[in-house]
């Protein structure tokens, strides 16, 4: 089977799926080939809807719509953040809006891309879209790769991730992490043991050995498997001239981490001190 045959079969499958899926979406399916057209731009002159290379980003919006205005600002940010990449940015707006009002809207948002006037909403209609704003990402063969509808949250992040994935700059896992980000818990999971350890370290630095000892002991009571805490324990004891006890603490640290530099040095210092 040739590549052409395979492509034809795939196109048929995509078409069939689009027509017969009970979960039909209100827009053209991924894989749909978008027809190119030469359209007038609001900036003046004409431009093709689609280019031949790289990822094509088509941004559909309305200048009179709150959601579009919000998204335009985000798209301006996206443009800046993705500058220098092989991308072809195109805005598309219905020709029922005047170039002047479109130019005002994109100027306020800081959008730099050329904006095409969609005569009779033909491009919008061909994509079977039912809402605005949205972004379509297509490949160099004009095949629809992703349809990103308006989202109040993480719109630009989503567009960027889709584009970077298309460019092969992020992995599927990284894309998935943007589309469905892991929860950001409040604060971080630090055990009380670590907190007492940190407090002990600060007390040790400030020379309050007694309280430092108390804090590190509390830390180790909660979690005895902390080599750094045992090493700190050793250092505190050593500073209190309790080298025999300190060596026990350093040994506990080294049992957990044989290469623990602080424990090795502390133990050596204590051994030397005891020899004297």
């Amino acid at each position: 089977m040739t590549v052409a045959h395979r492509s034809l079969l795939m196109a048929c499958a995509v078409l069939w799926a689009g027509l017969h899926s009970p979960f039909a979406t209100a827009h053209a399916s991924n894989g749909t080939v978008i027809a190119d057209a030469e359209l007038a731009t609001v900036q003046g002159g004409k431009r093709h809807l689609l280019g031949k290379e790289g990822a094509q980003i088509l941004f559909f919006f309305r200048p009179d719509q709150d959601h579009s205005r919000d998204v335009m600002k985000q798209m301006a940010l996206c443009e800046r953040e993705l500058s220098g990449k092989p991308l072809r940015w195109t805005g598309i707006v219905s020709d029922r809006f005047t170039p002047a009002e479109v130019k005002t809207a994109i100027g306020e948002a800081g959008v730099a891309m050329p904006v095409l006037l969609d005569a009779g909403d033909a491009v919008y209609g061909a994509l079977e879209a039912a809402q605005l704003p949205f972004v379509v990402i297509a490949d160099g063969a004009h095949k629809l790769i992703a349809f990103v509808p308006f989202m109040k949250i993480n719109f630009c992040e989503t567009v960027k991730a889709r584009v970077l994935f298309q460019l092969g700059e992020i992995t599927e896992k990284q894309l998935a992490d943007v589309l469905s980000p892991p929860a950001s818990k409040v604060g971080v999971d630090l055990t009380a043991a670590r907190r007492y350890f940190k407090l002990a370290g600060m007390l040790f630095k400030s020379g309050n050995l007694e309280k430092a000892l108390e804090a590190v002991q509390k830390s180790l009571e909660i979690d005895a498997a902390q080599a750094p805490a045992h090493a700190l324990h050793g250092n505190i004891l050593s500073a209190q001239d309790k080298c025999k006890d300190a060596i026990v603490a350093f040994d506990k640290a080294l049992a957990l981490d044989a290469a623990h530099a602080e424990a090795l040095a502390g133990k050596q210092a204590c051994v030397d001190k005891l020899k004297k």
């Binding site: 818990k185 409040v186 604060g187 971080v188 999971d189 630090l190 055990t191 009380a192 043991a193 670590r194 907190r195 007492y196 407090l199 804090a215």
Partner: peptide, 15 residues
């Protein structure tokens, strides 16, 4: 979740 993870005041402070 919030109580567990608001760590600026965790451990010694929360104690």
């Amino acid at each position: 979740l919030v109580a567990l993870s608001l760590t600026l005041s965790a451990a010694p402070a929360l104690a």
